[in-house]
């Protein structure tokens, strides 16, 4: 009994460590105070600033557009790459797998810095063209899409494709209507992973971005060094909004999983 209690307390303490900072900040985002410790009055000013200040709005939209764009590109490239690698000779597939692993294990600092050197210094592409930034983010995300699609290809029933071809489907049709639907769950989870990686990235962005462009990460890092209280507390509001969005998504995923389980269709 004591042992069980001890376990519950331990779990709660670790949860407290992980969540206390963000929850306290959430509470304070609804007040007009600029420092933790003194609550004066309830106020929604932080939220008004967050949604009306143009510099904050463009930073948030920039982050989202960049994440979606690079996730789409990464998903297309990674999926095609996985299909190509899967049907190639074994040595070629092993080679692709190995190179694919490089950005996965590499530190983001090194990835970002090396892409910056290659594109901005050696080739001479201007960072203002957004090309290094998008290339960097796609390099970060595509290997993870590849890794989530490849296992699905291995699980797939290969004879269905052959059957479609034998029944007169063109390879393109067979690929689109037979292969893609079977690996679709892998594509989707790869896409979701790509979005979260791009949203969370700081290092690649900071080395490849145009000087005037900011994502949430680079903006927050600069803002913590600045002394502008208005911006600082507006970012508390942003944390609250992001926390609630993530919470909703996680709750929805849990709900979907439990419904699936009830219907007896629980997959891997």
């Amino acid at each position: 009994m004591i042992r069980k209690l001890f376990r519950i307390i331990f779990i709660c303490l670790v949860l407290l460590f992980l969540y206390a900072p963000i929850l306290v900040l959430m509470v304070y985002s609804f007040t007009d105070s600029a420092n933790i410790g003194v609550i004066r009055e309830i106020s929604f000013d932080n939220y008004i600033t967050l949604f009306t200040k143009s510099e904050l709005r463009s930073m948030i939209w920039g982050t989202i557009v960049l994440a979606v764009l690079s996730a789409v590109l990464a998903t297309i490239l990674g999926t095609l790459g996985a299909i190509g690698a899967f049907y190639s000779k074994k040595q070629i597939m092993v080679a692709i797998n190995t190179v694919n692993q490089v950005p996965v294990v590499n530190a983001d600092v090194v990835t970002g810095f090396s892409i910056c050197i290659l594109l901005a210094v050696v080739v001479g592409v201007s960072k203002d063209s957004f090309l290094p930034l998008v290339a960097g983010h796609v390099t970060l995300c595509a290997p993870f899409v590849y890794l989530s699609v490849l296992p699905k290809l291995k699980q797939m029933d290969g004879s269905l494709y052959e059957a479609a071809i034998d029944l007169g489907a063109s390879p393109a049709t067979a690929l689109w209507r037979i292969v893609i639907p079977q690996i679709f769950s892998g594509i989707i989870s790869g896409f979701a992973l790509a979005i979260t990686l791009s949203l969370d990235d700081y290092f690649i962005t900071t080395y490849t971005k145009p000087a005037t462009f900011d994502t949430i990460s680079t903006y927050v890092v600069n803002a913590t060094k600045g002394a502008q209280t208005e911006i600082k507390t507006a970012l508390w509001a942003l944390s609250t909004v992001i926390f609630l969005i993530v919470l909703c998504i996680v709750a929805a995923m849990n709900f979907a999983a439990s419904v699936k389980e009830k219907n007896g269709k629980a997959g891997a």
């Binding site: 900072p21 963000i22 306290v24 933790i36 890092v221 970012l235 944390s239």
Partner: peptide, 14 residues
């Protein structure tokens, strides 16, 4: 899944 810079900001305040 929450941006790590925002989480570090929260930790810093506390």
């Amino acid at each position: 899944w929450i941006n790590f810079t925002l989480r570090i900001t929260a930790l810093k305040e506390i």
